[in-house]
């Protein structure tokens, strides 16, 4: 289990926030960790649960001092 990549989607709007997260997870191997920086509001309401809906695991999600959220996702399934 290791941190493979960091993705910042604070400049994106739904549904691109989720699409970019999904694309970032695709090339990773099962067990890899993706770090995502995302906005509060619509993004934090939709992206984490959509990631879970795709079979990945949200390990950590915390609000930062600047109001954005930091999320750690473990890739599950996909490339074996």
């Amino acid at each position: 289990m290791q941190l493979k990549e960091t993705l910042n989607i604070t400049g994106d709007a739904c549904p691109m926030t989720f699409v970019r997260t999904k694309l970032a997870l695709e090339p990773l191997t099962r067990g890899d960790i993706l770090e995502v920086v995302l906005n509060g509001g619509e993004a934090v309401k939709n992206v984490p649960r959509s990631v879970r809906g795709e079979g990945h695991k949200v390990l950590f999600l915390e609000k930062q001092d600047d109001g954005t959220y930091r999320m750690l996702v473990e890739k599950e399934g996909g490339h074996e």
Binding site: V44, K45, P48, V58, L59, L61, E62, K63, Y69
Partner: peptide, 10 residues
């Protein structure tokens, strides 16, 4: 629960 607080926010 991982205590992220998204539920309280939304």
């Amino acid at each position: 629960c991982i205590g992220c607080g998204v539920c309280a926010e939304v």
